[in-house]
Design a protein around this nucleic acid. Sequence first.
DNA 1: GCGACAG
DNA 2: ATCTTGTCGC
Length: 229
Amino acid sequence: MTTVRIPAGWPATEEQARAVQDELRERVVLDEQGPPPGTGHVTGVDVAYDDDHDLVVAAAVVLDAASLEVVAETTAVGRISFPYVPGLLAFREIPTVLAALEALPCPPGLVVCDGYGLAHPRRFGLASHLGVLTGLPTIGVAKNPFTFTYDDPATPRGNAAPLLADAEEVGRALRTRDAVKPVFVSVGHRVSLDNACAHTLALTPDYRLPETTRRADSLCRRALREATP
DNA sequence: GCGACAG
DNA sequence: ATCTTGTCGC
């Protein structure tokens, strides 16, 4: 497991963090379709925290997009680099996630984040931020609607409804299991919303959450347990 | 002004 | 995110 230092010049205040978002948001690419589902690699990233020891552990798990078999996995540990502030989650997770991604022995392909991309109060969530910093295609798949609204999609798996900020569609509430609460998909970088939803469905043959985030979640929790004094 | 709010 | 037992079901 690689060890991470908080980058020099990392934002220390909410004001600085918002200024960074404003600057990086200009570099988001929204006019690409992204890789087709079922081909190449798909990588899940997630983090776990131990606030008592000021520790954060990130995991990156690369799956073969066709078989959903694990191709590679890495973890990284670091100090918590920012408090949890809704809207500024990326500043808490990104240094450690970047280290885990950089430690991979193969290209990640599409990166699936636990959280939002465009569906963000300032239209620059974790998935957008990670995409701009790495240049990789990214999407966000979140478990909760955050501040957004939606109408319940029809009961069968595969149905979706717009995720709305007022009248603006910022993502989609996508049903991945029949009659089970939907997940909330949004675009990060270099992927269309339709394609992001298609990937999410390809990654959910058995469970509500994508295999990528399930694998990354269990790996970073296990790594945190093993790294905790 | 206050509360709610991805993880 | 994290704190937390048992329980119902495939």
